[in-house]
Amino acid sequence: MTDPRIYWNKQYIASDNKRVTYDLWLDKYKHILNASKDTPIIDLGCGLGNDTMYLYERHYEIISCDYSEEALKKLELFIDDPVTKLFDMKDGLPFESESVKVIIADLSLHYFSWAETREIVNEIKRVLKEDGFLLLRVNSVKDTNYGAGKGITIEKNYYNIDGNLKRFFDKEQLEKLFVEWDVEYIKEYEMNRYTNSKMLWEMAVKKVND
């Protein structure tokens, strides 16, 4: 199996140094983002920084997180003194409990086993303040352009595709994953940011007391 860190570092090194573009999926959550004006927003698995750039241009304070050092280096090309953290989500989140109001995980939570995914979601819940929000997008089981139903099946909707692990979600799995949260928004739709169209799920979920 391909070492994910090596794979993604190579991908980011090979990417050009053009300013990243972003879609406007976060626009609808302006009321949620504005509630975090006095607290940093965590961009979890930021990659090249599409959502970081969106937030930076709107003057939010951001902590950009990834486990690829090459991805975090790219942020320095376009953002003044970015605040970054390098870590693997499988090892937990290096933040204090109940320390932030908003965490964004845009196309970064679909690389893990079901057990690992649940642990990561529990860690996100730990870090969020009461009534804090997780805003996320993940692969849909309909995302056939990017590997849904292909490769070697490891678990339901979780595949080894040419040495890389990818998970795809249906609504039932997402509802199960966030059963202890308030689901304020959920929608499956097609995104056209890449060369081929991509099917994904978008959710806004709020932490509630146990």
Rank of each mutant, 00 (worst) to 15 (best):
M1V: 09
T2C: 13
R5I: 15
R5F: 11
Y7T: 12
Y7M: 13
Y7F: 15
N9C: 13
Q11S: 15
I13P: 06
V20E: 09
V20C: 08
T21H: 11
W25L: 13
D27T: 13
I32K: 10
L33T: 11
A35F: 02
K37Y: 05
P40E: 10
L44A: 05
G45W: 13
G47L: 14
L48M: 13
L48Q: 10
Y60E: 12
E61V: 14
S64M: 05
A71R: 07
K74V: 04
F78G: 00
V83D: 10
T84G: 00
K85W: 04
D88I: 07
G92T: 03
P94F: 01
E96D: 12
S97R: 00
E98F: 03
E98P: 07
S99L: 03
V100L: 04
K101N: 08
V102N: 09
L109D: 02
W114N: 15
A115W: 00
V121H: 01
V127D: 00
D131T: 00
L135E: 06
R137Q: 10
R137P: 03
N139E: 07
N139T: 07
D143T: 05
Y146F: 12
A148E: 04
T153I: 15
I154Q: 11
N160M: 11
I161V: 06
L165E: 14
R167M: 04
F168Q: 11
F169C: 07
L174S: 08
L177C: 05
E190K: 15
M191D: 14
Y194I: 01
N196T: 04
M199Y: 15
M203G: 12
A204F: 13
V205W: 03
V205S: 03
K206L: 05
V208C: 09
